[in-house]
Design a binder for these strands. Sequence first.
DNA 1: TTAGTTTGTAACAATTCTGTAACATTAAAA
DNA 2: TTTTAATGTTACAGAATTGTTACAAACTAA
Lengths: 226, 226
Amino acid sequence: MKGKIFIIEDETSIIQLVQHNLEKEGFVVSSSTNGNDGLKELKKFEPNLLLLDWMLPDLSGIDVCKSLRRDKNFKNLPIIMLTAKGEEEDKVKGLESGVDDYITKPFGFNELMARIKALLRRSDPKTVSDDLIFEDLKLDRTEKRVFRDNNEIHLGPTEFRLLEFFLLNPKRVFSRDQILESVWPNNINVESRTIDVHIRRLRQSINLSGKKELVRTVRSAGYSLS
Amino acid sequence: MKGKIFIIEDETSIIQLVQHNLEKEGFVVSSSTNGNDGLKELKKFEPNLLLLDWMLPDLSGIDVCKSLRRDKNFKNLPIIMLTAKGEEEDKVKGLESGVDDYITKPFGFNELMARIKALLRRSDPKTVSDDLIFEDLKLDRTEKRVFRDNNEIHLGPTEFRLLEFFLLNPKRVFSRDQILESVWPNNINVESRTIDVHIRRLRQSINLSGKKELVRTVRSAGYSLS
DNA sequence: TTAGTTTGTAACAATTCTGTAACATTAAAA
DNA sequence: TTTTAATGTTACAGAATTGTTACAAACTAA
């Protein structure tokens, strides 16, 4: 899980709890305790999702939301509103102002997490899946599948790990030694030329006629995904 | 990643932690534990970014910031303020005094790094890449690519190292011996005239018709990038 | 087991790079 | 000007690097 989440919430205890848990899940988190500052900082932070309290000391969550929806850069920012029980009846107001989802305090972290994932999956899939994507090449780490231009490609285990490795650091050039260390199981010894052969096999597999070459040779330095 | 970062923060444990991590990322770091010394040393150090604690033994972070903004050399220095929890309400004050971003203690290093990168990318893009640039010539060390006027150029390994060497010290004149020592692998012996040939190859490659010559010959002294 | 895959290596081919020598040109010195 | 030293230019052979293929051994799934 990756991506940035901003929180606008006046109770610092809630912020701490949520922030800590989200960071454990791999998100980068920033927060503010009132509406006006929150708006300013959020725009700098450029989050993938906003957790927004309904009741704030200055603006209401609704105001914050409306203001964001007027800004073309944040028209589509996923927003989850945190509401105390008594505010539930006003959900309609919130929906009209452009909120994407609600959660009622007190809430469990699991529920919050589930809603965040669900929302991100809809609006910004790359932040929830651990698919690795480079141009029209996609590697699904959970299902161990690879696609080029939506056509599934079969790779042997070694080619799969090799491609995975390149996709984790696209464009960067790796020496054969670095590749050996990262892609081959530890304390196994293979000739450095073996890599060339696997590169060739990988190239052959992910090559679609008419499409450009994705694996670049950098003479006397190594290979990279370009 | 390169560039210089200055830290003004009274807790030496935080300085140590942050400094160590930033240096691992490739930054040059210097620091001070109070406002007055900090201001003096900072001006000598000429950092690309300042991490500034809000609470200091003498001046407050706000004072430091205001003072810097009055100095024309530091009017645009990117500043990230480190605030403890209780100070959060005063964020507006900070924004007004000219701080660019905030981070609330305790913070994770990843978040700090993300904010530093984001801020530098906006204000001083060349510090986040390790590209070497001279006029319209760009050498990307990570991808091992060279561009003249945005057109990619292919260089052989030796020409690449040669250009990299010149770009690290533009305008300086190097003797053939110096070039040999720095660009050729150790304990290899080549005629000094060999350099002339590689210079010729480099010139030919990076030469765009109509553009001026970038490699200057200094008779009886050597070559330089001009 | 068997049939099919995958893996590492060797051998050879193709390509690119490198250093040097030889000759041409230029700039400084006499 | 002539002479001399330094640098520019070119061509080329052999070195070094990478691409390609085939094959036997190891491994896997049925």
